[in-house]
Design a protein around this nucleic acid. Sequence first.
DNA 1: GATGAATGAGCGTTCATTCAT
DNA 2: TATGAATGAACGCTCATTCAT
Lengths: 208, 208, 208, 208
Amino acid sequence: MTVARAGGRPPKKEAVRADGIDRRARLLAVAAELFATQGYAGTTVRDIADKSGILPGSIYHHFSSKEDMLDVILRDFLSPLYEGFSEIERQGDDPREALSKLIRVSFAWIVEAPHAVAVYQSESDNLIGQEAFEYVADYSLKIEQIWLRVLTAGQTSGVFRPDLDIKVSYLFIRDSIWSSVRWYRPGGQLTSESVAEEFLALAFHGLL
Amino acid sequence: MTVARAGGRPPKKEAVRADGIDRRARLLAVAAELFATQGYAGTTVRDIADKSGILPGSIYHHFSSKEDMLDVILRDFLSPLYEGFSEIERQGDDPREALSKLIRVSFAWIVEAPHAVAVYQSESDNLIGQEAFEYVADYSLKIEQIWLRVLTAGQTSGVFRPDLDIKVSYLFIRDSIWSSVRWYRPGGQLTSESVAEEFLALAFHGLL
Amino acid sequence: MTVARAGGRPPKKEAVRADGIDRRARLLAVAAELFATQGYAGTTVRDIADKSGILPGSIYHHFSSKEDMLDVILRDFLSPLYEGFSEIERQGDDPREALSKLIRVSFAWIVEAPHAVAVYQSESDNLIGQEAFEYVADYSLKIEQIWLRVLTAGQTSGVFRPDLDIKVSYLFIRDSIWSSVRWYRPGGQLTSESVAEEFLALAFHGLL
Amino acid sequence: MTVARAGGRPPKKEAVRADGIDRRARLLAVAAELFATQGYAGTTVRDIADKSGILPGSIYHHFSSKEDMLDVILRDFLSPLYEGFSEIERQGDDPREALSKLIRVSFAWIVEAPHAVAVYQSESDNLIGQEAFEYVADYSLKIEQIWLRVLTAGQTSGVFRPDLDIKVSYLFIRDSIWSSVRWYRPGGQLTSESVAEEFLALAFHGLL
DNA sequence: GATGAATGAGCGTTCATTCAT
DNA sequence: TATGAATGAACGCTCATTCAT
């Protein structure tokens, strides 16, 4: 792309493919942003095409359907998210450190892929029961199991308070973190890290 | 309705009006449920009509538009919600007690009007910038100010930890609570009160 | 209506019928005005009801349909219009005088029943071919025949110019007159009579 | 269209664009005809689509709304109409000749674009007050001013009778001419020119 | 007579998607 | 790949009309 092509030769296959990948990635980014801000049902294929500078029909050269775009957005988010959480668990830190890592990684994702996070948070409920999106619930469950194992270990080892309902605590913590995608804006006074630390302080020690 | 009508006399105007109010209320309940579960954009007027056993056109005798239904649902929720929070603040309890009350009342609303809560949570972002729904942001702000005053008072009086960012803490707490509408099911093992107590324990004392 | 009714007795049948006739007449007047200004297709039964201070359903106690209202408006206009023209022809004036009378009566109708004139002018074309409105074309034809007889007699007797196409002249004159309902406003500087005289001057002597 | 394409080559972009323009033009022609015969309010988008052999939704690839079609029809008619009248005034003929030209051009338009004329005549009253159609009244006014200037000049120079009210005479003449679109059928015994001459004779010299 | 809720057909319009070019 | 025209289903909504009260 930055290398001059001499003699007006037609673009190489390499370049074409790069363009194609770019176009596809750009379409996904636009779709994710619109799905995140207007909702999936509230976003039209024309919206995506307009914002991408192409015509609606052209989108179907890259994706088989609007639903397909949602599918790719969710897979591209959930797969590395799960892998990241798995990797943390595999590292075998003590529960307090493991939980801190899970939380910090979550906040990192909110900065890294805010639109995907927002789409996941807003739409995953609506997708329950749709065969093509079963994997969303599967990932959610496997992620939940990782967190629950860490929390349980912490309670067993006595580092977390014994009187808390682990499952309920997890749900409160999970929603607290992911919901912050709706109000956290990078570039403001709060860095992603400081939000994570703020949350850790609150979650570990409470208000009192 | 519970009083027997002697002699088979036709229902009085009272009864007719009750029917009308009932129908309207039933339509609102159906709409709220569908908006909550499928999203506002994902719900069609036909969906509401079908589930209510009438024809789509008949809805327009009771509401001027689909948007009007959303409007009524949100107003009917936000107005008493705000009033309830205001009343708590007016009672002048110490900050810890006041916050406990705010939290317990919030969880009570989730049981009382889960669909309205879910609609408020899911749709209020999309409504920003729509003149007809400015009041939603207004109420949200006024509610936020009540919570922030209580939290600030608690920090000033030394009962809440001084190192927390009040605004950020509020946002975490708020989202934690309202998001539970997505997973809490009354009638299960957890009563509404026990969820509130669980949350209070977590929020006040933390995991450690 | 102005006579006090003693003892709270219910209104007599006479009064009731008068009310009924009034209501019907008022509905017709409102309908005619709306049909004239918005067109028949562009006027809703609700428009008529709103402007009459009743509910749409109540109109059907007085008229069997919206079309029925149009029917009554046109009949109430066309029948006396035709009778008036017939009477003029029957008077046996010389053609110039007869034509003057036809023209003056036409302008009188525009003041007397401007809405009916406008409805007749705007809608009669659309009604061609509708069995229920055949009488409109019938009246139009019979009226045309009266005018043509007068014009032909005038040409035969030498008072009207021999080189004019009688039929075409009639159509020009007819449309000129009836169209003035769209711009003539009684109460302004021009009286109905002066418009008629202006037209007579133009039609009889021309611009030159 | 008249040039043979050798070798069965597929149509070039030129042809595609021509198709597009054709389709749009054909839709406009159909819409104008239906608006003229059934009225704008009395014509459905489905009517236009049916008569054009396409589906209702396809119309929206060419026009943004039904109202847009009316807008294009009126603009495409009024703009050249006004330009034609302007050009006549610019030629600086004596008033009698100028008026003759205005009248002859008007009748030519009735043959050239009868549907647009009929739509203009029937609907322009209903459009008053609609911001998007202000230009219709603007054009009408500017056209009226041209005619009034010619008539006034004729009266000043003594060629037109001094006792006529110029404005009223204009309105009678205008409506006479445009209304003929409702009855004049080209291809019959009367040519467009002969109708114009008939009208000129009547308007200039009168019946007597 | 009037009401108000309901009907069922149809309105203008939008949508995701297809496909010849 | 991109285009632009088309599709067919569905959308939110309006309409004339009905009818029990």
